[in-house]
Write a protein that binds this DNA or RNA. Structure first.
Length: 447
RNA sequence: GGAGAGAUGGCCGAGUCGGCUGAAGGCGCUCGCCUGCUAAGCGAGUAUGUGGGGAAACCUGCAUCGAGGGUUCGAAUCCCUCUCUCUCCGCCA
C-alpha cells in the first residue's frame, strides 16, 4: 500500500527554531472559546490559568493594529519614493519622514515579538480538547469499559511472574542489565532475545502484509522542533533523555519521528489515509515513577515497540481510529492473549490526545490487566504544531490533517504476557503458534 | 574534519546595477470549449498565514522567496550568523 506523498521540499526548519511560528496555533479558537477551554482544563485536572493569555492576546492584537498601519504607510510611501526617484524629483523630505516611521515599526515589532513569545509559551501548554465521546472522569477508575476478548487462562498450579520465569529460563537477566547500565534496564539472552525479535517481525509483517501499513525505520534521535510537533515538548522535557551538548532527544515512541515525516508539508487528499508502521526502541526517563513496577520488564527506560501511525482526513479520522484499534487488537487475538479495551476518561487522557483507547492484556502471574497498547486520535492538535496539511481538492483551501497512532504493540509487555499466559507447570513456555515460523518452528522454551 | 556550490510557489525553474516581482516561464491540478471514447488542442483559474468588509462571489490591509540578525527611506536581491542539501578530499560502520 503506497503512501508516497509529494516529495518533501529540501527546506528544513532549523532545529533551534520553534518551527511552528509560521502556522500559528489557533489563537482565535482559544479566544472565542475561553469558557470551553477553561472547562476542558478543569476536566483534565490541568491547573493552567488563562488570565495571562487573555491580557497578552489583547495586547498583541492592539500592537498588531498599530504596526500594520505603520507598515502600510511605509509600503505606500516607499512606492512613492521609487516613483519620484524615477522621475528625478527630490524625495529627501519623504525619506526623512520614512526614517521616523521605520524607527517606530522597529520598536513595535520588538515588543510584539516579546508578547508573542510569552503567549506561545502558554499556548503550547494547553492540552487538546477531548472528543465528545470521551467519558468525564477524574482518574483511571473512571475509564469506560468498551469490550474484552478471550478468557483468562486456567492453571492447575499457581502461575509465576514473568521475572521469575525469565530468570529461571535464563532468557531475561535483570541483574546484569542493571550492572551494565542501571535500574530499569534488562538484558535479554538467547531465546529471550529471539522471542523479542520474533515478536517485532511478526507484528511488522502483520501490519504491512494484512493491514496495509507502510514500514518505516526512522531515526531514534530527533530535534526539538520534532518533539514539539507531537506535543512532548515543551511540557514533558523531564520525561525525555536529552543528548549532552545538543538539542537532540532520544525518542520516547516512534510516534514522534513518524508523525513528523510530513512536518511542514501539504499532502494531496488522495493520499489519505496514509498509514505507517515502525519498530523502534523507546527511551523514557519515567520521572516520578520511583518505586512503581520496579520488578520485571513492565516499566523500563528502554523498551521496544511497534507503532502504528495514520494521517487521516478529518471527516473520517474516528473511523480510522476504530480500524487502528482493531489492527492492534488483532495482534493479541492472533497471539491468543486475553485482553480488554477501555476508553480513557477526561482525567486520564494524555496531553495531546482527543480520544484514547487503551488495550490492557491479562497477566496471570501478577493477576492484573496491564496496558499493552494505547490508540489515540489527536485530531488536528499535532498537525497544527507540526504544520501538516492536505488539500481537500486540487485548488481548494488547505486543511490540517488528523493524526492518529497506537502501539501495535509494546513488544516487551507482549513478551511478558506470553511468558505469563503460556507458562507450564514445569516453568517452560509454550510458543504461540503464530510465532513458531519466526523461531524456526520451535514449540517450547525450556531451561 | 577541510574546500566549494546551493536553498524561490503543489513540483521544476527565472529573477538584470536593491524600488509596480507575491514573484516570469514550464509542469501539475481545477473549470469550460472541442472531439464518437481516450489522447492532443484552445480558453480561464490556481501560494500560504493572518486581520478587515460582504449573505456569497469577491474586495482589501499586513506578513512570508531555508531560519535569525544587520545595512537602507525601501531587501528574494547587499552583509553577518546558523541550519539543511549537493560535489570533492580526509576519516569511518
Amino acid at each position: 500500500m503506497e503512501c508516497g506523498a509529494s516529495r518533501p521540499s529540501t527546506r528544513q526548519p532549523s532545529p533551534t527554531d520553534p518551527g511552528v511560528e509560521s502556522t500559528m496555533l489557533d489563537l482565535k479558537f482559544i479566544r472565542n472559546n475561553l469558557d470551553t477551554v477553561k472547562a476542558m482544563l478543569e476536566a483534565r485536572n490541568n491547573r493552567l490559568g488563562l488570565e495571562r493569555f487573555e491580557s497578552l492576546d489583547r495586547r498583541r492584537l492592539e500592537l498588531l493594529g498599530q504596526v500594520e498601519t505603520l507598515k502600510n504607510q511605509r509600503n505606500t510611501c516607499s512606492d512613492e519614493i521609487a516613483r519620484m526617484k524615477k522621475a528625478k524629483t527630490d524625495a529627501s523630505a519623504e525619506i526623512a519622514a520614512m526614517r521616523d516611521i521605520s524607527r517606530q515599526i522597529k520598536e513595535l515589532d520588538a515588543e510584539i515579538a516579546e508578547v508573542e513569545n510569552e503567549l506561545y509559551e502558554i499556548v503550547y501548554l494547553i492540552p487538546n480538547l477531548p472528543h465528545e465521546s470521551v467519558p468525564a472522569g477524574g482518574d483511571e477508575d473512571d475509564n469506560q469499559f468498551v469490550r474484552d476478548w478471550g478468557e483468562k487462562p486456567k492453571f492447575d498450579f499457581t502461575p509465576a511472574t514473568h521475572w521469575d520465569l525469565g530468570e529461571k529460563l535464563k532468557i531475561l537477566d535483570f541483574e546484569r542489565g542493571a550492572k551494565i547500565t542501571g535500574a530499569r534496564f534488562t538484558l535479554y539472552r538467547d531465546l529471550g532475545a529471539k522471542l523479542e525479535r520474533a515478536l517485532i517481525n511478526f507484528m511488522l509483517d502483520l501490519h504491512t502484509e494484512e493491514h496495509g501499513y507502510t514500514e518505516i525505520l526512522p531515526p531514534f534521535i530527533v530535534n526539538r522542533t520534532t518533539m514539539t510537533g507531537t506535543g512532548q515538548l515543551p511540557k514533558f522535557e523531564d520525561d525525555l533523555f536529552k543528548l549532552e551538548g545538543l538539542d537532540y532527544f532520544l525518542i520516547p515512541t516512534a510516534e514522534v519521528p513518524v508523525t513528523n515525516i510530513y512536518q511542514n508539508e501539504i499532502l494531496a487528499s488522495s493520499e489519505l489515509p496514509c498509514c505507517f508502521t515502525a519498530y523502534t526502541p523507546c527511551f523514557r526517563k519515567e520521572a516520578g515513577s520511583y518505586g512503581r513496577d520496579t520488578r520485571g520488564l513492565i516499566r523500563q527506560h528502554q523498551f521496544n515497540k511497534v507503532e502504528l501511525v495514520k494521517f487521516a482526513n478529518p471527516d473520517s479520522s474516528y473511523e480510522e481510529l476504530e480500524k487502528l484499534l482493531d489492527n492492534a487488537e488483532t495482534v493479541l487475538k492472533k497471539l491468543g492473549l486475553h485482553y480488554r479495551v477501555v476508553n480513557l476518561c477526561t482525567g486520564d487522557l494524555g496531553f495531546s490526545a482527543a480520544k484514547t483507547y487503551d488495550i490492557e492484556v491479562w497477566l496471570p502471574g501478577q493477576g492484573v490487566y496491564r496496558e499493552i497498547s494505547s490508540c489515540s486520535n489527536f485530531e488536528d492538535f499535532q498537525a497544527r504544531r507540526a504544520n501538516i496539511r492536505y488539500r481537500p481538492k486540487a485548488g481548494g483551501k488547505t486543511r490540517f490533517v488528523h493524526t492518529l497512532n497506537g502501539s501495535g504493540l509494546a513488544v516487551g509487555r507482549t513478551l511478558v504476557a506470553i511468558l505469563e499466559n503460556y507458562q507450564n507447570a514445569d516453568g517452560s513456555i509454550t510458543v504461540p503458534e503464530v510465532l513458531r515460523p519466526y523461531l524456526k518452528g520451535r514449540e517450547k522454551i525450556t531451561a
